[in-house]
């Protein structure tokens, strides 16, 4: 199936629509709710746990269904089995991401979902995030090099 098939683009749009609608509905585009969940020593807000739990229900079912399939409904390949390698890119990257997530109360999904109402501060965050994503491959190549020189 071509990458430009209308069905493929349409269902990508539909999936994105559910994702965006869910991020708005759940309150996850409100940075105070995200920081409130991370702030266990402050006025703790449990909402994020319900969002994560709620999202994992349909997703776990989808993985179960996918297990019995060879291809997606549109005939494209399904994702391979997840990797098991725990390397420093995974750990260091996740730690850096977590610090930024806590600082602004934003992760990539909600930052995009709130583009229509987030205002100037959000544009600053998204511009910096895109800059970081642009710079990441160079840093990734450095981290791929072995630690000890020969």
């Amino acid at each position: 199936m071509s990458y430009l098939s209308p069905a493929r683009l349409f269902f990508a749009f539909v999936a994105g629509g559910f994702f965006g609608a869910g991020l708005l509905t759940s309150g996850m585009t409100d940075t105070a709710k995200v920081q409130g969940w991370l702030d266990v020593f402050g006025n703790w807000d449990p909402t994020l746990a319900f969002v994560m739990g709620g999202a994992m229900i349909p997703m776990a079912l989808a993985w179960l269904v996918a297990r019995g399939l060879n291809r997606s409904a549109l005939g494209t390949p399904l994702p391979p089995k997840p990797g098991t390698q725990i390397d420093r890119k995974l750990v260091l990257g996740s730690v850096l991401f977590g610090i930024g997530w806590g600082l602004a109360g934003l992760c990539p999904g909600p930052s995009i979902a709130s583009l229509s109402y987030g205002g100037a501060s959000l544009y600053v965050f998204v511009a910096a995030m895109i800059t970081g994503m642009f710079a990441a491959p160079a840093l990734r190549r450095r981290l791929d090099k072995p630690v000890a020189a020969e």
Partner: peptide
Amino acid sequence: WGLIGGLLIGTGGAIYLLVNG
């Protein structure tokens, strides 16, 4: 609202996986 939003997010992920792969 968190739970409802979460279910919507997961539905989006399920569509992207099962339809688009």
